[in-house]
Amino acid sequence: MASELISVRNLRVSFGSDAGTAKVLDGVDLAIRAGEIRGLVGESGCGKTTLARAILGILPRNSARIESGEIRFGGRDLLTLPESALASEVRGREIVYIPQDPSTAFNPVFTIGTQIDDLMRFKSPLLRGGADDRQGFFNSYPRERRAADRARVLELLRLVQLPNPEAVLRKYPHEVSGGQRQRLMIAMALLPEPKLVIADEPTTALDVTVQAQILKLLKQLARERGVAVLFTTHDLGAAYEICDRITVMYAGQEVEEAPVDGFFERPSHPYTRKLLDSLPSSEAGIRGIAGEIPRLIDPPPGCRFHPRCERATGICRTERPPPEAVDALHSVRCHHRLSATEPAS
């Protein structure tokens, strides 16, 4: 699609360890359009975080290996870009990050203000195309730009509804609440005016009461600014709250991609269906999914879900199904996909 902001194609990532090589991402495709809020859902260990970090280029260098694939963004393949270019031109500028646990993502021994100042010093939108676009430890931070940046920071801190922003900047991370820290993380993500926000389970570490506010805030600000979001979560409710489209991952493979309505009303992949069925409800109580997540060191061939799938046949064991369109925005990778009329299992 022409309006694709980022497109990941056939990405394979493996992690080496003493026990063997874990094939954590197995030919993942993912395309996100400008301004779209995309959910990436799946169980723990399905590769959501690895995919998010691969896009940012921050996979651990000594254990992770990119076997194949490309990540097209702004006419370039991020996987072939040198680290220095990624760090200075992409990360923190075009693509930003909201971490899972804001209490450990802040550096504990510097004030919040210092950390935001350093971000703006190198990533301020005022730098774009400017003369001193270089990065360096000793680069000067001209007073006029500093003042303009400070005004932006305070404005955004107000937008994320932090009371008394000036005081917050003087505080240390441990002196503000978890919810405030995540509001700060959202503000820091938006300050460089990026095109894509990678939010890796941004609410998992927060109290349930705070989660909804943070999600609402993230959605509202992303919408207003036309920023795309890749939101990884294992919380289907959270995904429903804020996403336009949802991609489901299972054991390192993406299995279904659907607009949020289609996802909840017409799941086409047996795994998606089971995932939805596993949501606790008053009639059914809590239901799990039979079987276990496969070991990624020695994963099942073909569709990795086949050992747990009632519909699996011979072809599922040998061939990974190609993406098939259910409708214009909805596609699924299954040899035996569910039709819309089929009743829940």
Binding site: I58, L86, V90, R91, P99, N107
Partner: peptide, 26 residues
């Protein structure tokens, strides 16, 4: 190994700044 270094890297803070300021002080 910490999360803040992961975050600072993900946000593209210059490496030298991360090492000689943020890491060193800790």
């Amino acid at each position: 190994e910490s999360n803040y270094v992961l975050y600072e890297t993900a946000m593209g803070y210059p490496r030298r700044l991360v090492i000689w300021k943020y890491v060193l002080r800790n």
